[in-house]
């Protein structure tokens, strides 16, 4: 009995592939390390409390610059919440349409629409928002300027639609047919079955869709950079606002290397990263619970 020897070339390939697999982990560690290393100095300089809870962001003031990101944090939270409130119902009902209500050929014809919406680059959404939505809001609501939180929320709601739809549809489609048949046999109407049987059975998948939508909304930068107005006010529905993402984006190309302003931008990045990590962990939990159920 002789065990076949592993050839050196085979071993080398195996190691090479292992390295490839480990790069994904290495990238995550690298990103985390760099964001922490670049984000901490400004927080230390400004002070954690006055950085997170400061109500004014005035980074270019020569005599007395202020680095409080509370307005940015709140704007991101309100923006994501608004996008969810507007986008998730439409997305959920569209998913119901695709998975249950529509005749098959119609669903097959409409599914590519979702794919196309997902494929449109965010600058294009921003451009249309800037040229259609903002002037429309300005004239309908009789405002001096149409850009602000409301316009951003509408753009974000449209942008999270595709991911909400495709995830919820997958969850709804994987509900066992027997559940629905049992409900129909007991005399429930089709609509009652969708909302009281299918939707609760697909709960965790839909939760994952919502969490993913939150992640998209919090992380989006270019589209809302074009419609939010970008003044770091405390958030108000019709005010010009600045998000965490746009807070970085708007000053990044102008901040001098090594300045406190630039360091503070990296600190905003760190805060945003922590937000996204939290959302990711929630998503991971939702998906895993769905798999176990």
């Amino acid at each position: 009995m002789q065990r076949a020897k592993i050839k050196p070339a085979e071993l080398a390939m195996r190691l090479l592939l292992l390295v490839c697999a480990l790069t994904a982990i290495a990238f995550v560690l690298l990103i985390t390390a760099y964001l922490i290393a670049a984000g901490l100095p400004a927080i230390r300089e400004v002070g954690l409390a006055s950085f997170l809870l400061g109500r004014t962001w005035d980074s270019t003031n020569a005599s007395n610059p202020q680095f409080g990101i509370l307005p940015l944090v709140l704007t991101s939270v309100y923006g994501a919440a608004g996008a969810i409130v507007l986008g998730v119902p439409v997305g959920f009902f569209t998913a119901l349409f695709l998975a249950k209500a529509a005749p098959r050929p119609l669903a097959a014809a409409i599914r590519p629409v979702v794919g196309l919406l997902a494929g449109i680059p965010s600058v294009v959404y921003g451009l249309v928002g800037m040229c259609v939505l903002v002037p429309a809001l300005r004239s309908w609501l009789d405002l001096p300027a149409g850009d602000g939180l409301l316009a951003s929320i509408i753009v974000l709601a449209v942008m999270i639609l595709p991911s909400v739809i495709s995830l919820s549809e997958a969850a709804l489609a994987s509900v066992p047919r027997e559940y629905e048949e049992a409900s129909l046999a007991l005399g429930a109407t089709e609509a009652e079955t969708w909302l009281r049987v299918s939707a609760p059975a697909a709960k965790s998948g839909i939760a994952a869709a919502v969490v993913l939508g939150v992640g998209r909304a919090v992380g989006e930068s270019m589209a809302i950079l074009m419609v939010a107005g970008n003044v770091p006010n405390m958030p108000g529905l019709l005010r010009s606002v600045r998000f965490l993402t746009t807070g970085i984006a708007i000053e990044m190309n102008y901040a001098a290397p090594g300045s406190l302003q630039r360091k503070a931008l990296f600190s905003i990045g760190l805060v945003l990263f922590l937000f996204i990590l939290l959302i990711n962990i929630l998503l991971h939990l939702a998906v895993r619970r769905g798999r176990e159920a």
Binding site: F27, I31, Y34, A38, G219, T245, N280, L283
Partner: peptide
Amino acid sequence: FASEVLSGIPSILYALV
């Protein structure tokens, strides 16, 4: 999990990195 995290990171953070 790492690849999930990577796909969830917003592009503005990739820009910073």
